[in-house]
Every structure is written in C-alpha cells, then in structure tokens.
C-alpha cells in the first residue's frame, strides 16, 4: 500500500519536474527568437522541412475530409430539405473545427515526430553537446529556428486544409449531388463570419502550432540519448500532442463560441 502511494508520489514529482524543465526550455528558446530575424535563412531551411514537406499530406487529407463532409452533410440535410445549406455546413465545420484540429494532428504526426527524432538523434550523437562546447547555444541555434518555423507553418497549413476542404465539399456537393452552386456559395458567405469563424480558426491553429512544436522539440531535447529513448520520445510527441490539441480545442471553442 505504502509502496503504491510512494510510486504515485515519485510519478507526480517527476511529472512536475518535467513540466518545469519544459517551461524553462520554452523560455530559453524564446530568448533566441529575436536574433533569428537577422538570420532568417536558418528559419527558411526549417520552413522547408517543417512546412513544405507537410503540404502534400495536408492537401490530400483536406480534399478528402471536405468530400466526406459533402457526402455525409448532404444525406442529413436532404431529409430536412435544406441541402442548400451544404456549403454552410462544410465551411463552418472546416473553418472552425476540422481545419485547425485535423491539420494540427497531421502536423504532429508528420512534422512533430520528425522534429523529435531529429533533435533526439542530434542529442544522442553528441551534436548538441558538441555545439555547446564550441560556445554555440544549441537551443538558440538549432531549436529556436525550428520553433519559429512550426509557429509560422501551422496556420498556413490549416488555411490550406480548410480551403481545399471547402473545394472538396463543393466538388461532391455540386458535381456529384447536384446542389445549386449559387446557393452553396451564397449561403456559405452569409453564415460564415470573417472574424468569429475564420479568424478564430486561425487563432486556434496558431495555438496548436505553438504547443505541438514546443512538445516535439522538448521531447527531442529531453530524450534519453539512446535509440530506444529517441523512439519513445517520438511516440510521446504524437500522443501528447494529440491530447494537447483536443484538450485545448475544447477550451478554445468554449472561449470563442461558447457564449452564442
């Protein structure tokens, strides 16, 4: 019995210690951000590996999610004779929820895990340590550019996801199911608000980008420097990111759309 309580205590202490280290890590890397504006080429390289390499996945997923929304939405709406509202349904679901959330989940799987693996590997091959001994702060030189790249990429990817998704919904709704295209677009425009819907969606994706990149980089930096440790850290990145995204999504949704 005492042993169980003790192990619970150890677990709690470890968790808090890790949380503390994570926040110190974040503070440290934020101090490296201003210098990056004078060496933006470092960020561009990372924008390529974090952002550009995720575009294809986002495009395909966005298109299919939009198409499925079109099909499912039509089948439900047609019962109420409201199939003209298909555009609203597709657009609002994508812009408010699915765009930011699904693209953040995909981003965590594609770019987040890659970041963790990369940083973890650099740690286990003593590259980070080596930089420190060359008087180069690895958190500022290696981690900060990746963080900024994640922060910039995420809203862009989410926007691409939503835009392609709306197009996918239109393809199915108009092309396959014959919903009037005028009604599709005009209803969508009437009911979708630039600030309440689109802009709040963008804010969501920025928050997700921040958190996912932070988790991914910290897991890599804090990984046990063995191949097994890096592997576990990569898994943790995906799992923790998913929890963080879905949990934060609820909080943000409640804050943004709760009082309607």
């Amino acid at each position: 019995m005492m042993e169980t309580i003790r192990s619970l205590g150890i677990w709690g202490l470890n968790t808090f210690e890790r949380l503390g280290r994570g926040h110190l890590f974040l503070l440290h890397l934020l101090t490296g951000i201003p210098a990056l504006f004078f060496r933006f080429s470092l960020v561009i390289q990372q924008l390529y590996s974090v952002g550009v390499l995720s575009v294809f996945l986002i495009l395909i997923s966005g298109l299919f999610v939009g198409m499925v929304l079109g099909l499912q939405g039509y089948n439900t709406l047609v019962d109420f004779g409201a199939e003209e509202s298909l555009g609203v349904l597709v657009a609002l679901s994508l812009v408010r929820e699915l765009g930011p959330v699904v693209s953040a989940l995909l981003f965590a799987g594609r770019a987040g895990s890659a970041l963790t693996a990369e940083i973890g590997l650099m740690k286990s091959t003593e590259q980070l340590s080596g930089m420190e001994m060359m008087a180069i702060d690895p958190i500022r030189r290696v981690i900060a550019p990746r963080f900024l790249a994640g922060l910039i990429s995420m809203p862009l990817l989410a926007a691409i996801f939503s835009a392609v998704g709306v197009f996918g919904g239109f393809l199915v709704g108009h092309g396959l199911l014959g919903v009037d295209d005028g009604a599709f677009w005009s209803q969508m425009q009437v009911k979708t608000d630039w600030f309440d819907d689109v802009f709040n969606g963008v804010i969501k994706s920025m928050v997700f980008g921040f958190v996912v990149t932070w988790i991914a980089l910290f897991e890599g930096y804090d990984a046990i420097p063995t191949s097994e440790g890096v592997g576990r850290a990569t898994t943790r990145t995906v799992v923790h990111s998913a929890f963080a995204i879905l949990g934060l999504d609820f909080v943000l949704t409640a804050l943004m759309f709760g009082d309607e």
Partner: peptide, 16 residues
Amino acid sequence: LRKRMGMLFQSGALLT
C-alpha cells in the same frame, strides 16, 4: 571561455 576551449568528442559529434 568555451571559445578558448576545444573539445573532441568520442563520436566526433560532427553535424550530420
């Protein structure tokens, strides 16, 4: 100070 110290790691620690 570290700029004036060199260190050779066992693995070399080259940037891959």
